[in-house]
Amino acid sequence: MFLLMRVEFHSVFPLRPARVHEVCGAGAMGFAAMAAQGPVLWIREAWLSDTLTPQGLLPLFDPMQLLQARPRDQTDALAVAEEALKDGALPHVVLEVTRPLDLREGRRLQLAAKAGGTTGLCIIPDGMGSNAAETRWRATPVFDLTREDSTLTHWEIIKNKSGTLGAWHVRWDQKESRLDVVSPVGERPGSAGTSG
């Protein structure tokens, strides 16, 4: 075990507004849906063959609030993201990144988010983040012995510009539409095998 300085969950989630954050891992889409409450623009490149399903989003997020942009390539995707972040008409912008962002692109998104007062979230493939991101998370789904309809996920903050790192097990409470922090990661049985 390594020593972990605990950071309180409520100080890092909900994500700090007017900043751009990043998330990677297999549970990244779920993370984005849980983080973005309220109107959101979801930017996915047109060639991606998988689709978001509104019925799947339904427990996490009202599909009425969702707008989806399908740009041709990442250049257009970044332009759309910058435009939407700067405008501020939609409080959340989710961008699916397919190739690594460099510092300049990350910084431009960060400035746009600051100008518009909006929260940006980039879903990145593992290890393709930009140094300009405010926080970077890794979300990994975890097998839950106890419940059938569980959305138990291991959330780990792996980069934090204004604080320390931390890790939690969270589960979405569908009835109350809120996120429950289950218990600290070290104390759970069966968590040793997950990526930590």
């Binding site: 047109a46 707008l67 942009a69 740009p71 332009a79 759309v80 435009e83 501020g88 939609l90």
Partner: peptide, 24 residues
């Protein structure tokens, strides 16, 4: 706010095509 959102959709639409800004 609706006006602002429509303006945003127009601006994004001129870049990537208005039919590529979608809703379910």
């Amino acid at each position: 706010s609706p006006d602002q959102l429509n303006d945003l959709i127009t601006r994004i639409g001129t870049r990537i095509g208005l039919e590529n800004v979608q809703r379910f």
